Amino acid sequence: LVRYRTISKIPQITLNFVDLKGDPFLASPTSDREIIAPKIKERTHNVTEKVTQVLSLGADVLPEYKLQAPRIHRWTILHYSPFKAVWDWLILLLVIYTAVFTPYSAAFLLKETEEGPPATECGYACQPLAVVDLIVDIMFIVDILINFRTTYVNANEEVVSHPGRIAVHYFKGWFLIDMVAAIPFDLLIFGSGSEELIGLLKTARLLRLVRVARKLDRYSEYGAAVLFLLMCTFALIAHWLACIWYAIGNMEQPHMDSRIGWLHNLGDQIGKPYNSSGLGGPSIKDKYVTALYFTFSSLTSVGFGNVSPNTNSEKIFSICVMLIGSLMYASIFGNVSAIIQRLYSGTARYHTQMLRVREFIRFHQIPNPLRQRLEEYFQHAWSYTNGIDMNAVLKGFPECLQADICLHLNRSLLQHCKPFRGATKGCLRALAMKFKTTHAPPGDTLVHAGDLLTALYFISRGSIEILRGDVVVAILGKNDIFGEPLNLYARPGKSNGDVRALTYCDLHKIHR
């Protein structure tokens, strides 16, 4: 019993810090008490220290592992850092350059016999395009090294910054494609005289377009951006097909006994025919423009016929181009109408809503002055909100995010209106959640004399007048207030005048 009563005193000691020596009952000389009392004092002292730490809000209350900052290894790049964003855009520009100039170089340097010394005699450094290609190869190699040090988000939505895990993730992902696209074939085969082989191998750079397509997928929600990307894709495919079309004609031209190829026909049409040795002929500019003209006309199913396939190889390629053109029509131009419709969806919704308003007016036989006010209010409210119901949009977000959005939407009023000066951010967040926005066209009466005042109004834009009878008592403008002081009276009061809008007004109100 003594032991039980001794232990039962522990909660009292913990909360009230009572010393055991003052209790005459606990001072009985028993061996059990002498053993338990020192333990009680020690526990009391420890609990006292913990309570003191909690009340003082000291940093040592938290466990040590929670006080440590997340460790980022040296030379690790955050995937959302500004440097990584700028670097990704730079790589994107280099990939676009590669997609345009690599097929052009591979096709127009394929057994090209233009006048001038061969590239091997001039030297590697004197070729501007080769120098640019070398810079692109170096940048792609540097990009691989950067990807080995860039964080990523795993399946659990955690940012991984450990170098080993980053390397394994990159090896399992895009490393092989990036490595093949970054191989400097110019340096590996330079001086061997195989410019045709170098041009063909350099087309491996186009593998990076797969990554670019995935990154550009984030802009699919913007109709104008999608339309622009589709047109660029169409032009890029036409450019690639033009390079292939020229390569076919250029390879067949020296081996044909009869002059029936499209390059021969082009030379005869523009007065620059090929001679018996295969030299001469149109310039590279004429060849490229004509090839691009043929691919565009074939892809769009126009086909004027002034550039036509004559050999079997050219006919087979033309059939493939027609098939590609039909697929592009289905996948690209078939979506253009939907994209344009999405661009004008706001206008369509406006006309639909206006039609419903006019049908309501016609069905209920609203008189002319009231009908005009109804239409003007709808037009003004639509121009202010673009038909978007803010309350319906915010309803799907958590309250903390709703408060931040409301604070942002009402920031101008909260910053410049005098009653809100000096208020804490928590108070402003709470008030912003209570605001209701209303609009009024010129001549609209917001409050009639004798109406119950259940709200306090803040003028965000425009001006109003307060009338008693036919006498203008006051004219209020931006950041002015009218209405009933909230919670100042037990019952809502009545208006002693009319409140009429002089201009288009936007008002925020808080109800009782």
Results as ranks from 00 to 15, higher is better:
C400N: 10
I332Q: 03
R208M: 07
F101P: 01
N275H: 04
P118R: 15
Y274C: 01
D404W: 01
L207C: 13
S412Y: 11
F296Y: 04
P442M: 04
P117Y: 06
A99K: 01
G325C: 01
Y124K: 01
E115L: 14
P254Y: 14
V226A: 14
P82N: 04
L343M: 04
G443H: 06
T445H: 10
Y219F: 14
H169M: 06
L90K: 01
S194T: 14
V100P: 01
L94D: 05
K172S: 04
A403V: 04
A449F: 11
L94E: 14
L327V: 08
Q379C: 05
F140D: 01
Y350N: 01
I284S: 01
Y97R: 01
R349P: 04
E157G: 11
L263R: 01
A106E: 01
P128L: 14
P254C: 15
I284T: 13
N391I: 07
I284H: 01
R349K: 09
C126G: 01
F294K: 01
S297H: 01
T76V: 07
E376V: 07
C126Y: 01
K272E: 01
S412N: 10
L110K: 14
L200R: 04
C122Q: 01
E196A: 14
S308L: 01
N250G: 03
R74V: 05
G325T: 01
Q415T: 08
Q365V: 03
K436I: 13
V86A: 07
R371I: 01
K425P: 12
P184N: 04
F185R: 04
I146C: 07
K395I: 07
E375S: 04
G191T: 09
P70G: 14
L78A: 11
L409D: 02
T102W: 05
L227C: 04
H439T: 14
A330G: 03
V100T: 01
I189D: 13
E195L: 13
V159M: 01
M179D: 01
G278Q: 03
D268N: 14
K84E: 01
I405T: 04
V447S: 02
I260K: 05
H351Q: 03
V307N: 03
F420H: 03
N250W: 06
W245E: 01
R165D: 11
G281H: 01
V226R: 11
V95H: 01
D143V: 01
F363Q: 10
E196K: 14
T233Y: 04
L94F: 04
L176I: 14
F228T: 12
F294P: 01
C232K: 01
C427N: 01
L197Q: 01
I361L: 09
P118S: 11
L229E: 01
H239P: 01
F140T: 01
G278D: 01
Y293R: 01
L428R: 10
V226Y: 13
L355F: 15
R373Q: 12
G280S: 04
Y329E: 15
G173D: 04
M322K: 02
L343V: 07
V302Y: 01
R342D: 04
C417N: 07
L343Y: 12
K202I: 01
L236H: 01
R208K: 06
V210F: 04
I198S: 05
Y293W: 05
Q353Y: 03
L67Q: 05
R371P: 01
M139Q: 02
A449N: 08
S313Q: 04
G271V: 01
V132L: 09
C417S: 13
S297N: 01
C427G: 03
N156Y: 08
M433L: 10
